[in-house]
Structure formats: C-alpha cells, structure tokens
Design a binder for these strands. Sequence first.
DNA 1: GACCGATTTAACTGCTTGGTACATTTATCA
DNA 2: TGATAAATGTACCAAGCAGTTAAATCGGTC
Lengths: 226, 226
Amino acid sequence: MAKASALSRRTAAGKLRQSSWTQDPEGVKRDILDAARQEFVENGLSGARVDEIAARTATSKRMIYYYFGDKEGLYRAVLEAMYDRIRSFERDLDLASLPPREAMVRLVEFTFDYHVDNPDFVRMVMVENVHHARNLKASKTIAGLNRSVVEVTRETYRRGVEAGLFKTGYEPLDIHLTISALSIYNVSHRATVGQVFGYDMCAPEIIARRRAMTIEAVLGMLRLDG
Amino acid sequence: MAKASALSRRTAAGKLRQSSWTQDPEGVKRDILDAARQEFVENGLSGARVDEIAARTATSKRMIYYYFGDKEGLYRAVLEAMYDRIRSFERDLDLASLPPREAMVRLVEFTFDYHVDNPDFVRMVMVENVHHARNLKASKTIAGLNRSVVEVTRETYRRGVEAGLFKTGYEPLDIHLTISALSIYNVSHRATVGQVFGYDMCAPEIIARRRAMTIEAVLGMLRLDG
DNA sequence: GACCGATTTAACTGCTTGGTACATTTATCA
DNA sequence: TGATAAATGTACCAAGCAGTTAAATCGGTC
C-alpha cells in the first residue's frame, strides 16, 4: 500500500537490496504508532496482531520491540498519544467570554463534534473499557488529565446558576458525563445500532439531528422550571 | 470453584476415576454457555480463551466444539441468549395504562435499570461493537428483535404529543437512542471513568443520581417550552 | 579512519491456542 | 441383549503469534 512513501527503503523482492538506510528514530516511532493505532482501533488489543502492525509500517517488527518493549507497551503509547491530542484541543475552548447558556451550548457542541471527528479515540476508549482500563492505570502520563474539561463545565454551570438560568444541585462531573454519554454513544455503538435498527449513524443528517437532540437534552436537564 | 456442583462427575486427581456419567445435553450446553458468557464478558472475543472456558465448565473442551462448532459459534450463541433475555423482559412493560409523562418516566427507568442490572449484556454489546457487529450480522435470530422497544417509545411519545405535553418533531428511534446512550454509558465506561475521574459508577448513590439526571434530561428534551 | 553506541535487518524460537482424532461410555430400541 | 447412534473423555497437533538472537549498518567522535 502506502508503504513505499516517505520512509521507503524496501526493495521490490528482497533481492538486490541496496543495504542502505538512514537513521530516523522519531520518524520510525511515528510510523509505528500510526500503524499500531490503525490496527488496535480496527481489532482491539487482543485482536491486534503485531505482525500485521509491522506489515503496515515501512520498518520491521523488531523495531516495535526496540522502541516500545512489547505489545502492551505499544498499545499504551497509542493510548497516551490519543489523550495528549484531546488535551491540546481542549485549550482552544474559550467559554468565559460567552453568556452561560451559549457557553454551555458551545461546550456540548465541542464535545459532540470532537467524538464524531475522532472515532479512533472513541474506539480506543471502548477497547480500554473492555480491558477494565488496565492500561490506563499503568500509564503515568494520563492520570489527572481530563480534569480540565470538568473544570470548564463547573465554571460554566456555576455562572449559569448564578445568573438564575440553571437548576442548582448538580455535580459538574455528572453534567460532563451526561454530555459525554450522549456524544460517545453515536460513535461507539454505530455497528450494533446499524445492525439492529438499520440506522446509519454515519449519515450527516442523522448526526446533525442527534447533535441537536443532545443540546436539547442537556439544556432541558439544566433548565429551571420543572 | 463451583465446578463440583450439579454436573459433578470429575474425580479428584484424574486417577481412580469411576468412569460413570449421565448424559445431559441440555445441561451441558447451559453449563458451557454460562462459562462462555463469563469468559467473553471478562476478556472480549479475541481475549477469551477456549481452554479457559472449558476449565470453567464441568465438562471438557471437546464438548464446546461438539455443540457449538467453533469459538465464534459459541460467542454467537452467548450473544443470542442475551438478546433473548432482554426481549422477554420487555414484555413486562405495561405503559398504556399510565399517562404519557409517567409512562415515559417509567420507560426511562426501565431501560436505565435494565442496563445497571445486566452489565454482562452491556459488555457483550460493547465487545460486539469493537468487532463491528460482525457476529450480530451472522446471527439469524437477532435481526428484527429490539424493534419492540422502539414501538413502545413511539406510542408513548405519540400520546404525549397528542396530550400537548411533548414537543413534536422527534423520531421515536432517536428518543430511544438518547435513553440508551444515557443508560449504557454508566455501565460500559465504568472502568475509564473510574480511572480518569476517580468516580465510582458502581456506588449506589451515584447510580441513583445518574438515574435521576437521565430522567430529567429525557423529559427536558421532550418538554414543550423551549 | 577507526572506534562505539544507536539503529536497523533478517531469520529464528518456543509457547499459546484453536481445533481434532480416536477411543469409550451411555441411552435407545428392536 | 445386542446393535446403533448420541454423548463424552483423553491425548494430541499444527498454525499462529509474541518475543529474541545475532549480525550488519549508520552517525558521530577522537
């Protein structure tokens, strides 16, 4: 496939090999991580095959073990890279400048869109849950990371309550979980929903509809008159 | 463990075996399905080991292949049994006798509680999604099954709209998916939420809180004044 | 220009694991 | 009671697969 791209150094049939290559640790690592992400996302942790990951790279299996130790180490590296990415995105949110209600809507939209746009992340989280978050536990980097979203939620909710717009008494984390649940489901359960109900959750108009409903649900939950 | 129960016929150390056993096809099948469910729920499809399943039964590995063909056949059988169970539960719902709003609340409560009470089902669905619902596709039994919940949702929603209680314009299936999303998440994402936020989604008081919020969110979404 | 650690290749290994061959026992029924 | 089919136990196998060995090559340094 796209193996003969940037890192191309393989010969056609193994013969005639020019036996010349350039050192590129970072490039090789990125190449491996990329191939691994695809494979883990596609087949899960147990379902993924190291040989298959190696085949997807421009390098060899040996390098996987050289840089990542073992299969789980590689998996953990992929997981960490994904969480890093979501953290960097969260910084872009600037809700303080918006009035509470609009800020909350934007927070929901952001969360919803992030999951739609990053199905790989959703699937990795799913896989991680199947494995009881064992590798999340083992990772030092990730601990105390996602807290920031909760802080943003807390602040937005607080302002809304203060302005007399939102019902009081909720835990900010619970609000975040509600938003998460409604956002993740549409991606994580595409396959079974598609199969059982014949409903294509990839279709743009359906995604748009579920997005609107998610906003309504969250605002409805927070609304005062009940 | 509980291996030496109803089907007990194993000798202590293999020696001294009395070489006497009774035929019990249905019992053996149930025994295998039970052991398989535990293993698949615990480790997923690829992560599950046939030898481990056999070890959990009172019978031998040979019987698994005798009755279920191969690993995937066994997995499919477990999946089908789970969907059978949820279908039988759905019959217990009698919402027609309740006013629309109360009926909707009860529907949400039922769905929420079912998932909390059947984490195995939730995990199997998760595993199935990791595998792109490939086995759901392969199963004849399951197709056109879960439709009944949607019909119940449709009818309840219709009555609510007619009574001037609910906002118009929603798809019944979308309402069901919203309820499902909020119900499933608390079970399916226990591990990662527990790890990332230190939040114990098994704790009764937290479950109760999320249950209440789920009801609020769904009713809030359906409410007229917006 | 030779030395050295970092990087990379190619071939290999041994255990795991899904699946099977074959013998044996149990129930059925003529 | 003895023939036959269904059910079960035991031992085994071959492929799959994570992980390794050993040697070669590269990039810099003195």
